[in-house]
Design a protein around this nucleic acid. Structure first.
Lengths: 138, 138
DNA sequence: ATAGTTGCAAAAGTTTTGCATTGTA
DNA sequence: TACAATGCAAAACTTTTGCAACTAT
């Protein structure tokens, strides 16, 4: 077992998710998944792609991010009005959100516990529990 | 003590917050604070105002909601990309978010506990802890 | 009167959609 | 070749800003 990351090529990952490895998709997947876990906005990823000489429109970046989210390769995190972050860490965990920097960092699920969850309303089930610890500089 | 709501006129509330009670502001405050606690979007409040024959632009609704939030008469809740909710309940509590209905409901702080909060990063302090339990129909 | 505040039209963002193009079987 | 999937321009949202008009002192 590889502690850094159970490595599978990005290509295999896309195939496993049932997504065609098109040029744009593969390029974006490489930017996202080859390296450390990260939290990116669509705009950030788009400009990275540009810098890396990958020709891709912002709309495609959005579509791709949503397809990856759908395929559970990414997780969408909503902490600010008018902007979504996409998290490459899809394991169970929570977030610090540093408001001054607009920056997210992970909190392992083991480092925090939510207890006494109230009963869910009739006819519903829990999809996910998000804990966001909002920080400000002190 | 009034169990329903420790009633102070909306006018006094605005004054106490240092906000001039202009016609629009007063009208929006009445819609927001005279009645049950609620979660509204800017668009919702704007259309309520229209229905109530209050002439106010959407931009002013946004400005007013943010001023109220700043003055701690409201709390902003971000759970969906591209839309903010404003909560008239400013006491410590958490939220269910029913994704299918795009609807928020309150969870009293006493009904749920977050334990073992990790140490906050150097130079930061906790501003708020948001717990969002995302629900789907089952 | 006038200094500060307010309210809104216009602008700026972010995100989604519709459809021509492309790629695959 | 046919058929579905893709990528992007254009459109649709939500939110913010700059400044003319207004208000309370």
């Amino acid at each position: 077992m590889n502690l850094v990351r159970p490595y599978t090529g990005v290509l295999d990952r896309l195939k496993a998710a049932g997504l065609r490895p098109t040029r744009q998709r593969l390029a974006l997947a490489k930017l996202l998944f080859e390296g450390e876990d990260r939290h990116v906005t669509a705009e950030q990823l788009h400009s990275e792609a540009h810098t890396a000489n990958i020709k891709v429109s912002l709309a495609t970046v959005y579509n791709t991010l949503h397809q990856f989210t759908e395929a559970e390769l990414l997780r969408e995190v909503v902490v600010e009005p008018g902007r979504s972050y996409f998290d490459t860490n899809i394991s169970d965990h929570h977030h610090f959100f540093h408001e001054d920097e607009s920056e997210l960092t992970d909190i392992p699920a083991t480092a925090l516990s939510v207890a006494n969850l109230p009963a869910t309303p009739k006819g519903t089930e829990v999809k996910r529990v998000d804990v966001i610890i909002r920080l400000k500089s002190s």
